[in-house]
Simulated scan of single mutants.
Amino acid sequence: MERGLRDDLWIGLVLFVDDEKPTKYLFPSTVWNEPNQLFTDSAVKNTEYGINLKQHSMKEFVEKYGFEAMVNKIWS
């Protein structure tokens, strides 16, 4: 079985914030092939991937990776 980042591996993320409806996101594992301010790779000894969800990066994250939008994009 192939391990690591690949085109057929997707991440589903649900954020729970107090007094708000949960929000769902979907993105391919390959986003970490090119780490940036949103998707970080802090590998030192072992591969470790992170998501930087700060106020200034949330808008981009919501627009690009909202669950319904990504599902529509995949199936169109």
Rank of each mutant, 00 (worst) to 15 (best):
G50C: 04
Y49E: 04
A43N: 15
E2T: 03
Q55V: 03
E20I: 01
S57A: 08
G4M: 11
K45P: 00
V17M: 05
M58G: 02
K64S: 12
E63K: 13
K45R: 09
Y65D: 01
S42T: 14
T47F: 01
I51Q: 01
P22Q: 04
D8W: 10
I74N: 02
L13K: 09
E60F: 07
G66N: 15
V62W: 03
D41E: 11
E20M: 07
K45M: 11
L38Y: 09
N46D: 14
E34R: 09
D41Q: 08
Y25Q: 07
T47E: 09
D7M: 07
H56I: 03
E68S: 06
V62T: 09
E63Y: 03
G12M: 01
L26V: 06
Q37R: 11
N46H: 14
T40R: 13
L15Q: 14
N72H: 06
D7K: 14
K24G: 01
H56T: 04
V62L: 05
T40K: 13
N36Q: 02
E60S: 13
L38A: 05
G50F: 09
M58F: 09
F16I: 08
K45E: 12
D19E: 15
N36I: 02
S57I: 07
W32N: 09
M1Q: 10
N36L: 01
I11V: 15
K54Y: 03
L26D: 08
I51G: 00
Q37M: 08
M70W: 00
R6A: 10
P35N: 12
F39C: 04
L15W: 03
S29D: 04
G66V: 00
L13H: 07
F67I: 02
F39L: 07
N46R: 14
I74T: 03
E48I: 05
L53M: 06
L5M: 14
I74F: 07
D19N: 15
F61R: 07
K24Y: 08
N33C: 04
I74E: 02
S76D: 10
F27D: 13
P28E: 10
K45V: 10
L9C: 12
P28S: 15
Q55G: 00
